[in-house]
């Protein structure tokens, strides 16, 4: 009992913040089952509860929610796979190969990656507009073009993240393979890749989450209602002040975020590890 009293302020702070945290979550959950479709609940529970908002997402032809989910999944998967391949190869080179310009290469990468590509969005808009004139499938307004831009940032961010992990794989393994006459690409594909597979999966999932949540460039590119991702599609639901479809919006939000939250919580350890990796060295 005394320990509870001594720690009372700790519990109190936690509970206050839990209330703060749950406030919008509660509002979303309640709105999604409130069939009047408003975001203003008078009572603790809405007067009329039902699944209408959820079924609406899958039945209403004006709301291609399943298409958006599909687009997001395709885009996020493609970007995750591409990022991991690019990032892993680069990280391998920087971690395992000794070559002239390696130091400069890493430093340059480290500097460039502090400028996320959306900072240059005016330039991207103009450049992709030009590319559209030649290859509509990879220019402004296309999923393909968006993917290319995402992959542009892949090396900086992922190589950096992966290099730390790769440095921890014992050097003896690939050294003995080299002595046995293996080429660097054999070492990469046959030794390094299988060993790093779990880490690559984690980085891939992180990249997946990142792409799924990306909004700026996606909204710039995906103007066509059929090609939108979940982020852009749901934003259009409620972004416009005359379109306040909160019922289906909240239902869609829950469907979209529950899997991501689960992935995130199960990767917690790695995410926190990655967050502090750069700092604790101090």
């Amino acid at each position: 009992m005394s320990s509870l009293r001594a720690n009372l302020w700790r519990h109190a702070l936690a509970w206050v913040l839990i209330a703060f945290t749950f406030f919008p979550i509660y509002v979303v959950v309640v709105s999604s089952i409130d069939i009047t479709g408003s975001l203003a609940t008078n009572s603790f529970l809405p007067p009329a509860i039902g699944w209408d908002n959820y079924t609406l997402l899958f039945t209403n032809e004006d709301i291609p929610f399943t298409t958006w989910v599909k687009n997001s999944l395709i885009l996020a998967s493609a970007s995750a796979v591409g990022s991991v391949l690019i990032g892993a190869a680069a990280a391998f080179a920087f971690s395992r190969l000794r070559f002239k310009g390696r130091r400069v290469g890493i430093q340059t990468l480290l500097l460039i990656q502090v400028f996320p590509s959306f900072l240059a969005l005016a330039a991207i808009y103009v450049i992709m507009g030009e590319i559209y004139k030649v290859f509509p499938a990879f220019g402004l307004g296309s999923v393909g073009g968006l993917l290319l831009i995402y992959l542009g940032g892949a090396m900086g961010v992922n190589a950096w993240l992966l290099k730390g992990f790769i440095d921890s794989i014992p050097l003896e393994l690939d050294e003995s393979a080299r002595i046995d006459g293996a080429t660097p690409s054999q070492v990469y594909w046959l030794i390094f890749f299988p060993l790093a597979a779990p880490v690559l999966a984690v980085v891939g999932l992180l990249s997946f989450i990142g792409t799924f949540n990306e909004f700026v460039l996606a909204s710039l590119f995906l103007t066509d209602i059929e090609s939108r991702t979940v982020a852009v599609g749901l934003q259009q639901f409620v972004g416009n002040q005359f379109a306040q479809n909160w019922g289906p919006f909240t239902a869609g939000s829950i469907i979209a975020s529950v899997p991501l939250v689960i992935i995130f919580l199960s990767l917690q350890k790695y995410i926190v590890g990655g967050l502090t990796a750069g700092s604790v060295k101090g």
Binding site: L85, I86, G87, A89, A90, F92, A93, L97, F99, R102, G105, L109, I112, F115, S117, L119, A120, A122, A123, I124, V126, I127, L148, I149, L151, G152, G153, A154, M155, G156, A159, P184, S185, Y188
Partner: peptide
Amino acid sequence: TPFKFLAPGIVFLLVFVLVPIVYT
């Protein structure tokens, strides 16, 4: 050899990150 591992990343980085910055 390092180029064999870095080439894809370099191409994307140059075209879709560095070029927009320079273009800006």
